[in-house]
Design a protein around this nucleic acid. Structure first.
Lengths: 127, 127
DNA sequence: ATACAATTTATCAATATTCAAAGATAGCAA
DNA sequence: TTGCTATCTTTGAATATTGATAAATTGTAT
């Protein structure tokens, strides 16, 4: 496996690993949007929006188009949304997994000795 | 969009955003593997392997099975590999993009005035 | 007890995040 | 032109998070 590909993946996932940046990508899914519009919807300072956009821009995930005093951003490759979708599917699968595990514990709990409640949330931060 | 899903995505992408962890997932693609085997293939200290595995474990991306003194790890949800695949496709698309842009510049360069060399590497770190 | 496998902890360097202030740049009006 | 405003970007400083390394610890088998 090429090292450059692995470096790319690392930088790419790093760029996505931020709640605001994920929100930005979600918003840009509907099409291009100005920084102003983004700022209004995100409800954070405009400098903050610019900073997060800069991260996405430096990784060439988004690109900008200037029009008057406004700057419109759009996602370069729609496959980025696939990434978000797959992540969502993994999230859902984990939820279902946890839920059916809990149900099974309840069933067994009715007749057997009390099971240890070591239930950890699926895919969550460490304790 | 649910906040919990966004937090999940953030944590998930953060977990993937590391070259060693990506290599680990690539290795686990073939099936489960002991820490020892991983350590041999990765050529890093065993404590380093454990640490990276801990990150993946805390996000419930991998799970462990103990057998004697060995611990075997496997990926919980194969959809994780989809994530890596989509990232690879985005990488390839960016390469093709850059290449055809360069070719176009060369064609035009033969007859027109010298084009500005503002060629940025696709999806790379900032200058 | 010894050896082996794996994990945890401690420490320090390197990166990333946040917020506010200061800098561009385009449009517009006097 | 000059000055003013709106939009966006960049910078700096404080804080927080992450990374790498080595040392100490746990657990299991012989």
């Amino acid at each position: 496996m090429h090292d450059s590909l692995r470096r790319f993946k690392t930088e790419f996932f790093k760029a996505l690993a931020h709640p605001t940046r994920i929100r930005i990508l979600e918003l840009l899914r509907a099409g291009e949007m100005s920084v102003n519009e983004l700022q209004t919807k995100l409800e954070i300072e405009s400098s903050g929006v610019s900073q997060q956009l800069a991260v996405l821009r430096n990784r060439n995930i988004v690109e900008a188009r200037k029009e008057g005093t406004s700057v419109y951003y759009r996602v370069r490759d729609p496959q980025v949304f696939e990434l978000l979708d797959v992540a969502r599917r993994i999230f859902n699968a984990a939820l279902i997994d946890t839920q059916s595990m809990l149900e099974q514990l309840e069933e067994e709990g009715a007749s057997e000795d009390p099971p240890e409640r070591t239930t950890r949330r699926a895919y969550a931060r460490a304790p």
